[in-house]
């Protein structure tokens, strides 16, 4: 049963490759372009369909997915990443980054206070490194406060 994941993955890739190849036929024109924009996707898409189909029929490798408690941690980390992308421009770089570091540190097994301290040091620290030293402009306060 552990090979079911490989089969499922193969099936998903097959579907994507089939859609991809089909969609390429929409890219017609053109003027002064011999091969056109639709041929290369077919050259890639068809072998991709064959390879993924072969994985559905002859899967290899064993996959052990994590248990439920681990999945929660992963989901929490993902939520932290996505949340970061949503609030970073609003609250500004140092605060958002401090929160991200603290959250991920906590999720990865650090004690809450130590994770917070880590975020409090590295949030502003990374801002200083990138904005002040390397000259990549990063918002300090964000649109909410600034």
């Amino acid at each position: 049963m552990t090979r079911m994941s490989v089969r499922l993955f193969g099936a998903a890739v097959f579907a994507i490759a089939a859609l991809y190849t089909l969609q390429s036929q929409q890219y017609l024109i053109t003027f002064g372009d011999v091969l056109g924009p639709s041929v290369f996707p077919v050259i890639v898409g068809i072998p991709m369909m064959i390879l993924s189909a072969s994985l559905v029929v002859f899967p290899t490798g064993d996959v052990a997915w994590p248990g439920r408690d681990r999945l929660w941690r992963q989901a929490a980390a993902l939520a932290a990443f996505v949340g970061y992308t949503l609030v970073m421009e609003e609250v500004g770089f140092p605060i958002a980054t401090a929160a991200l570091i603290a959250l991920i540190g906590f999720i990865m097994g650090g004690s809450p206070w130590r994770a917070l301290a880590l975020g409090a040091v590295f949030g502003p620290g990374l801002w200083a490194l990138f904005d002040q030293v390397l000259g990549l402009p990063l918002d300090f306060l964000g649109t909410l406060f600034g």
Partner: peptide, 18 residues
């Protein structure tokens, strides 16, 4: 790991944003 990886993650976010 709990101290190293969060900082690495933050650096990748800034790097890509930059």
């Amino acid at each position: 790991t709990w101290a190293l990886m969060p900082v690495v993650a933050a650096i990748t976010f800034v790097g890509v944003y930059g």
